[in-house]
Design a protein around this nucleic acid. Structure first.
Lengths: 250, 250
DNA sequence: GCTAATGTGTTCGATAATCGAACGACGATC
DNA sequence: GATCGTCGTTCGATTATCGAACACATTAGC
């Protein structure tokens, strides 16, 4: 129930939508109810309405998302300049380093990817637009957290419960704080198989005219192909260059 | 009000979300009410709830979308294989023709873009993932409409009210029908400055194992740089090749 | 500068949308 | 065939939601 005056049905329907994903490409009424804590009757009403307005399909038992959901995401992209301004810079990074390049912002405790330029490779890395990864476990996240005030960082660390993704994932608040401080000092962050096995990432901040971190621009590659020293020596200058160029447009 | 039992508040809130976009990057309570036909009190409750669940921000007067909306779009992408399977093929097209390549599906009467690979160019063409263009005015749309049964095509033509975007946009049902029939015969469609000035497009169908048109793969370029004959001679084979390879995975 | 008109956001008693316990249908198990 | 568990649906009761009225701010006219 919303604390302020609101529209409870809207909150319930969106809560159901948020449970669709790779782990659950489709849901039954009972599954939706169980995941959201709603009764089956409420879940049913929400799902039927989502079908009616075109965001879900229904085969008689299972409900699944439709492409129309992309329109909602596009509402954000059309409403703000950053993803579109970033596109040529991400393409430039991709061309120069021959790896995928991405842009992300801090959303709650995650790095949420808002633009991406994918390299043509058999094994591709990086995260899709619209996907989110925990801030503590990614170079992108370290850079974004580095843009917080010290007080906000401590608030984040207080509520953060790290789930190790690999043996290298930072596990304690002290480790995360140290990584974020290093990202702040170096104006860049590297991760090496902390988010996922075989994945190396490099991220730098995108600063606006008031020197605020508005996004993180990153490159990722498989550990098998790209060494950490290559990332630092060859990729970092290019990423900084394009991030700075983008920052000048903000 | 939903025809079946549903959740009216959810439908109202989504109706408001759908009005954010390039033309309206932010909305007041009164604007949201006016655009959706809801009362200001209802619009206000919806907007407050959308802020509470994190999809809008509020500066005291204006409401604007947040990146979290991309998560909803990603629910679709994560739930279905097509956009991800298509990514390497779109990248291959982009590398071969040095222009942006896209994938779209038919959504109501529009071509809705679900994947894209952007060429690195100063002037870029093509449509963003999540964006939609009228089916009658695009090569992509002609190819998608070509996948309809004749009966469904006539239903579409009966309700379609073409809005000319350029002097070359098809204006009548007969013209559109003819273009769709040609797309069906040639298994490809070309448009030349029909959707937008200076824009040329080429699209081919992606067929699944049952020979159904599940998507359209397209390339677009500026008319100043690429001739129609070059598109037909050089781009078409590459697009067909990648569309066929993608189709074999479905 | 004053007044009136208009526009915007908010409130709260009345209304109807929504709730969920109970029910019916179906499949699994014995 | 009987029983049990699960799932989807129903409808009288409840409360979330509605919108007319209000308060406040802004704009237009004199």
């Amino acid at each position: 129930m919303p604390a302020a005056e609101g529209m409870a049905g809207l909150a319930k329907g969106l809560a159901i939508l948020e449970h669709f994903g790779q782990a659950r490409p489709s849901l039954t009424i009972s599954e939706a109810a169980e995941l959201t804590g709603l009764s089956r009757a409420v879940a049913r009403r929400c799902l039927l309405t989502l079908v009616e307005v075109g965001y879900l399909t229904h085969d008689g038992r299972y409900f699944a998302p439709t492409p129309r959901l992309l329109r909602l995401g596009d509402a954000y992209v059309e409403s703000t300049a950053l993803p579109q301004l970033a596109e040529p810079h991400l393409a430039a990074v991709r061309e120069n380093v021959q790896e995928s390049a991405s842009l992300a912002v801090l959303q709650n405790d995650d790095a949420l990817f808002i633009a991406r330029s994918e390299a043509r490779r058999i094994v591709n890395t990086g995260v899709r637009v619209g996907a989110a990864v925990p801030a503590y476990a990614s170079a992108t996240g370290h850079v974004l957290l580095a843009g917080l005030t010290e007080a906000d960082l401590e608030v984040y660390l207080a509520r953060c419960t790290p789930q190790p993704r690999t043996p290298k994932t930072p596990r304690t608040a002290a480790e995360i704080r140290d990584r974020v401080h290093r990202a702040r000092e170096e104006r860049a962050a590297f991760t090496d198989e902390e988010l996922e096995y075989g994945l190396r990432s490099l991220a730098v901040p995108v600063l606006d005219s008031r020197n605020h971190v508005v996004a993180a621009m990153s490159v990722s590659a498989t550990a098998a192909r790209i060494s950490m020293s290559r990332m630092r020596k060859d990729f970092l200058p290019i990423l900084h260059e394009q991030a700075d160029l983008l920052g000048r447009k903000l």
